[in-house]
């Protein structure tokens, strides 16, 4: 007996189905990249003292990474903001770290606790001497923030993919949907507290008891107090403006048009032109603490200056009772 709901057109439907799949498969972003020579990974510094910093120790190019995907010494980590991005295709072998659950404590307002971070790093196959290469969307914002946490917790060789995920994709390089299965690593947390500044540290700078340069990396309108939050973002602080004495250098100025970092010479003159030459400690901040890591990365890892991130940032400062602010625009929260 015939199953009445199936007709004999089935064979033909299969042809249609196959044709459909072929058309859909044609829409692929993946292309095979040209091979680049395998470069040796320099021996990282040991202990909690970071070794010499510079672009060679801080950045890898897409070519270098493509040639080192199978290098057991290298572990690639994606930290992107857009959900589903990693899952739908990532750099082959890359492990996914979710910024809002893996890198933070979801209860206390703090970065991830050391024991949980150690566990995550070990699960990702990271050893004490692993070269950790981070990349992500949005010009590496959250990858840079991940690098800051990795270095705070004692990793020695942490780099960013120059040009971020966007450059890898634009060059038509290989993407994979396979989640790598890696042997657990032996990473052990050590602490580098000096990379982080807290509210009292910043207050001491403002009150003149310690000396440091404060860099506000937000937009000029946020800095001046014209607006409380950029378009599309919630207002999180009830005061607008900036920390007294801070200078405004939006984070994006450190990048070329194609999203890669500017050269050391260009970066040095960019920041020196605004009085930042590495002669004194620097503290960077932004709105919620993440983008400040981008400028922190540029100044500390590429230029080798002494820099800390104030991750409480404007959300903490602009809401704290009794701390002074500068608000050239004179906006008053709640006023009509």
């Amino acid at each position: 007996m015939h199953t009445p709901v199936v007709s004999r057109g089935n064979g033909l439907m299969l042809v249609v189905l196959v044709a459909l799949v072929i058309v859909l498969a044609g829409c692929s972003t993946a292309q095979t990249p040209a091979a680049a020579p395998v470069a040796a990974v320099p021996v990282p510094a040991q202990g909690t003292e970071l070794g010499a910093r510079g672009p060679e120790q801080a950045l890898v190019s897409t070519e270098w990474l493509a040639a080192n995907l199978d290098n057991p010494q290298v572990r690639v980590i994606e930290v992107s903001v857009v959900p589903g991005l990693y899952e739908r295709g990532h750099i082959p072998g890359a492990v996914n770290f979710v910024w809002h659950t893996d890198f933070v404590d979801t209860v206390n307002r703090d970065i991830v606790a050391p024991d949980r971070f150690e566990q995550l790093a070990r699960t990702a196959g990271i050893n004490q001497d692993t070269t950790v290469v981070l990349y992500g969307d949005n010009s590496n914002w959250f990858a840079a923030w991940g690098a800051w946490i990795f270095l705070q917790y004692g990793a020695n060789d942490v780099r960013l993919l120059d040009g971020s995920r966007a450059k890898w994709e634009a060059e038509g390089r290989e993407l994979s949907v396979t989640v790598p299965s890696v042997a657990a690593g032996d990473f052990t947390v050590a602490h580098r507290e000096s990379l982080r500044a807290r509210l009292p540290d910043v207050l001491a700078v403002v009150e003149g008891t310690t000396t440091a340069s404060l860099i506000d990396i937000r937009s000029a309108d946020e800095f001046s107090g014209k607006i409380f939050a950029p378009e599309g973002f919630q207002e999180l602080a009830i005061r607008a403006g900036h920390i007294p004495g801070a200078i405004n250098i939006p984070w994006k100025q450190a990048l070329n048009e194609d999203g890669t970092f500017k050269s050391v010479d260009e970066l040095q003159s960019l920041y020196a032109g605004l009085g930042i030459d590495g002669s004194q400690p620097i503290i960077t901040y932004c709105r919620i603490g993440e983008r400040a890591s981008h400028t922190w990365f540029v100044l500390s890892q590429i230029l080798g200056y002494e820099v800390a991130v104030y991750d409480g940032s404007w959300t903490e400062w602009g809401n704290t009772i009794g701390v002074p602010i500068a608000n050239p625009s004179g906006t008053v929260w709640g006023a009509q």
Partner: peptide, 29 residues
């Protein structure tokens, strides 16, 4: 072939399977 593709209504199971496949491809990509 023309009649099967463009005149007759596609059979229920084939139509359903194709919709399920398109749903999967959409989620995947």
């Amino acid at each position: 072939v023309w009649a099967v593709l463009f005149h007759q209504r596609w059979p229920a199971l084939v139509t359903g399977a194709l919709v399920g496949l398109l749903g999967t491809v959409a989620y995947m990509r």
